[in-house]
């Protein structure tokens, strides 16, 4: 059954990808990219990766569409004819595809329990997590504790990308993402948008609440700082879309966002440093408490909070940077 579901979803994925590349209307491409992301998430879910599916859902459904549309509003919505020959790239791509497909015949089939990837550290993670950390979600345990260095690195990549976007687009005076013209021309705009505004504003608290649930329930179910950050950022972006950038920035000003970005990254590093000061290794949470299991749990909660803060801050800063550019 899993295989049948996966085959169907994957086939739709390929069809959508071909359509995305073929269309010259960039807007249509962004819409189809939304479907692509939904299909990816469903496929991740079918392949047992609930955490990954939740991340894809949080990022792909709202934020990535909004960012692409923001970029389209600032550039162009159609792709022009380039006149270059398409045959050379097509030949290159087909030859490469044939080579890699030939290589796949050596790969273990989907779900093969004897595949090399399942032999090395994974069984250890699965068998030792209940004893060492005692949380049900092994993905969170690996993310926060066993591979804490990796995650720290990823947080700093996100941090750097956010800072770089701010350098490139500048932050400063607030703008509207899709620059609205003066009021007299948008006659009746707000009146006609009464229903989306009411329903949207009703939803925002639930989105934030759900984000917090994902953040703090990440040890027990799918979730964690990355997903929660994206969901909360999506909630604030919804507010900005409904009520305008100015009010969104009044609710969560840019200085607060900067504190969140820097504070989140710093919190993660500090947890590591405190571990060192208390006599352990960097990011070895066992020393944080007299009981090593409780120490591990405390460490994971702290670093997940840092990740959540940093991701929310970066995603919102990026959104505001695009919005400020639109009216500059």
């Amino acid at each position: 059954m899993t295989i049948l579901l996966a085959v169907f979803l994957l086939t739709m994925l390929v069809i959508t990808a071909v359509a995305i590349v073929r269309t010259r209307d960039l807007f249509a491409a962004v819409m189809l990219l939304g479907i692509f992301s939904l299909l990816m998430a469903a496929n991740f879910f079918v392949l047992d990766a609930a955490d990954v599916a939740l991340t894809e859902a949080a990022v792909g459904a709202g934020i990535s569409t909004v960012l692409f549309l923001g970029a389209l509003a600032l550039t162009a919505a159609r792709e022009r004819e380039s006149g270059d020959s398409r045959w050379l790239p097509l030949v290159v791509v087909v030859i490469m595809a044939a080579t890699v497909v030939y290589a796949t015949f050596d790969k273990p089939a989907l779900g093969d329990p004897n595949a090399p990837v399942h032999q090395h550290v994974a069984p250890w993670y699965l068998s030792e997590t209940p004893r060492l950390i005692d949380i049900p979600n092994v993905v969170t345990a690996v993310l926060g504790s066993y591979r804490g260095y990796d995650t720290l690195g990823e947080v700093f990549v996100v941090f750097t990308a956010g800072i770089a976007v701010l350098f490139l687009l500048g932050s400063g005076r607030p703008g509207e993402l899709f620059s609205r013209p003066p009021d007299e021309l948008s006659t009746g705009g707000l009146k006609h948008h009464l229903i989306p505004r009411v329903v949207g504003k009703l939803l925002i608290p639930f989105i934030i609440l759900f984000g917090l649930y994902v953040q703090f329930h990440g040890e027990y179910g799918p979730g964690g700082g990355f997903q929660a950050g994206a969901i909360i950022a999506a909630g604030v972006i919804l507010y900005a879309l409904l009520e305008g950038e100015t009010r969104a920035l009044a609710a969560l000003p840019e200085s607060a966002l900067k504190v969140m970005v820097i504070g989140g990254a710093l919190l993660y590093t500090l947890v590591g440093v405190v571990c060192m000061l208390m006599g352990g290794n960097f990011l070895d949470y066992s020393v944080l408490s007299t009981n090593s299991v409780a120490g591990q749990q405390l460490g994971i909660i702290l670093i997940e909070a840092g990740v959540g803060l940093a991701v929310t801050g970066v995603l919102l800063s990026i959104f505001h940077a695009f919005a400020a550019r639109a009216t500059a």
Partner: peptide, 25 residues
Amino acid sequence: SNPLPQVLILTAIVVGISTMALGLA
């Protein structure tokens, strides 16, 4: 199922959207 690839991809998705934003900028 194996948790390790999931951890790698989970973080990669969020990194991916931030770097994509950088490209768009």
